[in-house]
């Protein structure tokens, strides 16, 4: 039988959990208590999963996605070699795109956006790697799926400029009314963008 856990170790675990996004000390305490009480069903499998991920998780050397191998499954899948690359800011954006299943090409994760405020320049992002991929992989279209923020769109324009000599088609996601959106609840900017991007029926 293993020795009883010291309260100090429980406290240390609570402190670690409280640092996770969306959690504070109280919710961390509740969560840790839940784990400890359901050791076999929850705590042990979770600990094993965490150890496996800690051991294996890494950035895909091609696209920057998180995976457990050197090259992620999306980059190794031959069915996704459609000649299209979708550029996203963060891995969470890639996962959001994959959730919808609407895109069946490959991705490129920049790791952020150009930001004057945070002094993030092109050399801090994976933009040179994107230009190399476009040249080496025979890409026909680059889809810029960057956030509709000033920094996101500044980055999009910068990338379009960098890719100009490659002669590749560069497109960006449309902006407008979201699914189920009601005009009354939309901000003025979105309504304006939707109106400018209107299409003939």
């Amino acid at each position: 039988m293993s020795p009883p856990t010291e309260p100090g170790e429980i406290d240390a675990l609570i402190a670690q959990v409280a640092r996770l996004p969306g959690l504070g000390p109280r919710s961390a305490r509740r969560l840790v208590l839940h784990l400890v009480r359901r050791r076999a069903q929850v705590l042990d499998p979770l600990a094993r999963a965490l150890a496996r991920v800690a051991e294996a998780a890494r950035e895909c050397s091609l696209c920057g996605n998180i995976s457990t191998s050197e090259i992620c499954p999306i980059c190794t899948d031959p069915r996704r070699a459609s000649g299209e690359i979708c550029v996203v800011e963060e891995v969470s954006d890639l996962w959001a795109m994959e959730r919808g299943g609407a895109f069946c090409g490959r991705y490129h994760v920049l790791g952020g956006t150009l930001s004057a405020l945070d002094a993030i320049g092109p050399e801090d992002l994976r933009i040179p790697a994107l230009v190399n991929r476009v040249r080496d992989e025979g890409i026909s279209e680059v889809i810029l799926a960057l956030n509709a923020t000033v920094d996101g769109q500044t980055t999009a324009h910068y990338i379009a400029e960098m890719l100009e000599p490659c002669g590749v088609r560069v497109s960006a996601l449309a902006q407008g009314v979201p699914m189920g959106g009601e005009l009354d609840y939309l901000d003025d900017g979105t309504i304006g963008a939707a109106l400018r991007a209107r299409k003939t029926l």
């Binding site: 509709a148 000033v150 500044t154």
Partner: peptide
């Protein structure tokens, strides 16, 4: 919000960069 200028500037690269420059210089 009274007027969201970024949304209007986003489609025009030069205007967007101008907006960024104005805000950054003021700050």
């Amino acid at each position: 919000p009274l007027r969201l200028r970024a949304a209007e500037a986003m489609a025009d690269r030069l205007a967007l960069l101008g907006l960024g420059s104005v805000c950054a210089l003021l700050q």
